[in-house]
């Protein structure tokens, strides 16, 4: 079992609906803690909790503003080791997440589900310590549109 903490930077693309459907690029960041349990057969399960923010607010040509938000996200995932050399492992995992976010200043709270696929690498660096890197792809179902986030995360882990 590995406990890890990581930071992630993302490019978030929002897609609205309607004839003037916008494709708007925001950027996102998150700080995440996770726990991952690896089974000997190559399966893994992972739970994580993150603080995420997406900004800035952006306007479409028709005057619709897709606003920034920030909040917390809890996720679960299951996956498989693609490679597991002596020095670490490369894994692919996927699962759902639920985010509770707050609009800036307005006090409006929203909850939205998302689906997350992640390619992660864990490299042992000292006994009981590891570096973790991940390439997550997350689809956020915001109800009035979709956001797709492609990120890059780096962190450290303890455990084995």
């Amino acid at each position: 079992m590995i406990f890890d903490a990581s930071v992630q930077a993302s490019l978030v693309v929002s897609m609205g609906s309607g004839a003037f459907s916008p494709i708007l690029p925001h950027y996102g960041s998150s700080e995440r803690i996770g726990v991952e349990y690896a089974f000997p057969a190559g399966l893994l399960v992972r739970g994580s909790l993150a603080y995420l923010s997406v900004e800035p607010s952006l306007y479409t040509t028709t005057g619709i503003r897709y606003r920034s938000f920030a909040g917390f996200s809890a996720g679960l995932a299951a996956g498989y080791w693609l490679f597991s050399p002596e020095w670490g492992r490369l894994a692919l995992s996927a699962g759902p997440a639920l985010s509770l976010v707050l609009g800036p200043q307005s006090g409006l709270v929203s909850l939205f589900p998302s689906a997350r696929v992640e390619l992660s690498a864990i490299v042992g660096w000292a006994p009981g310590f590891a570096l973790r890197a991940a390439l997550p792809l997350e689809l956020m179902f915001r109800g009035d549109g979709l956001s797709l986030a492609l990120g890059l995360a780096f962190g450290v882990g303890i455990g084995q």
């Binding site: 930071v7 490019l11 916008p22 708007l24 690029p25 996102g28 306007y59 479409t60 890059l152």
Partner: peptide, 23 residues
């Protein structure tokens, strides 16, 4: 009655320019 997002921020800014030009 992103902080932290220097590489991607640059990419975002670049992409933003092209999309937000519509705006």
């Amino acid at each position: 009655a992103g902080r932290i997002l220097f590489p991607l921020a640059a990419l975002t800014a670049l992409v933003s320019c092209s999309f937000v030009a519509q705006g």
